Simulated assay, not measured.
Amino acid sequence: MNILLIGCGKMGGAMLRQWVKDGGNSFTVADPVKPDLPASVRHVSKATSLSGAEFDVILIAIKPQMIAEVLPDYAFALKPDGCFVSIAAGCSVASISAIVGDRAIVRVMPNLAAMVGLGVSGLFANARCSAEQTADVTAWIAQTGTCVPVDSEDRIDRLTAISGSGPGYVFEMLRSYVAAAMDLGFDEATSRALVFDTITGTVEAARQSDETLEDLRNSVTSKNGTTQAGLEQLMRDGQLHALLNDTVHAAYDRAVALK
């Protein structure tokens, strides 16, 4: 596919690096200031520099509040059978349709781990998207990690609360876990290694196991042992479950409010 990226900030740039690495598509970036781009990626600073070029996909990777001002200048460059793909958080398909008309539009909610090829993205395609377009865009987004197609924009908002905002929750939990290790007397570098490798190994063990998470937890918890003592504090009065439940519901409510 011939793809135009409008904007190339942290998320757009992270995804672009993975796409270029995997190959197969050609890319042009439109940005007033030239970002650091791979050599194979063309850059234009304004729409008039496109010189009649036509694209299979136009990726909207700018801040939501900029879309109404910037997108009309580039919308003409989409082929008649092309589609718009938006990674702008909180920007609905209806908002984009109000600018570009009744066109094929895909809304994608990626997350930060796309920068290392381990992202999780939700994808919703409107009714104007053909099955082939949806499959092509899904495969393209999956080059940055896992891609989860959903059947409504509300599911995108719910996914945003879990995986879109999830790296923020995980970074904060990591920060607190590392701080606790340091409080036990380890230096920061050792604390980071202990915490990061423990979490990485545990996640991979769970991924490769057919057991439930509860069974896995129980399998490493000896009666009256150290893990049980720690878990009794972590799970006291159901506080961990309640906290995470409140966290994702607050994020979902905000995602709905932003549309």
Rank of each mutant, 00 (worst) to 15 (best):
L5P: 02
L5H: 06
C8K: 04
G9W: 09
G9R: 08
G12T: 00
L16K: 03
K21I: 00
D22V: 01
N25K: 09
A30D: 04
V33H: 15
K34M: 09
D36V: 03
D36F: 01
D36H: 07
P38M: 04
S40D: 11
S40L: 03
S40P: 11
R42D: 11
S45R: 04
T48I: 03
S49I: 00
L50K: 04
S51L: 11
A53H: 05
F55N: 05
D56G: 06
I62G: 08
P64H: 04
P64V: 01
M66E: 12
I67V: 12
A68P: 01
E69F: 02
E69C: 01
K79P: 01
C83L: 13
F84E: 05
F84K: 01
V85F: 14
G90I: 01
S92E: 07
V93Q: 09
A94K: 15
S95D: 14
I96V: 14
I96T: 07
A98Q: 11
R103V: 00
A104W: 08
A104E: 06
I105N: 04
V108S: 02
V108C: 09
L112R: 14
V116S: 15
L118C: 14
G122M: 09
A125C: 12
R128F: 10
T138D: 06
T138W: 02
T146V: 10
T146L: 15
P149I: 00
D154T: 12
R155H: 13
R158T: 00
A161E: 08
S163F: 04
G164R: 14
G164I: 10
P167N: 10
P167E: 12
E172M: 15
E172V: 02
R175H: 11
Y177N: 08
V178G: 05
L184A: 05
D187A: 08
E188P: 01
R192L: 06
T198D: 08
I199A: 13
T200W: 12
V203P: 10
E204T: 06
A205F: 11
R207S: 07
L213M: 06
D215G: 00
T221W: 09
T221Q: 09
S222R: 03
K223T: 05
T227E: 07
Q228I: 10
A229L: 10
E232Y: 08
Q233N: 14
A242G: 09
L244E: 03
D246N: 14
T247D: 10
A257P: 13
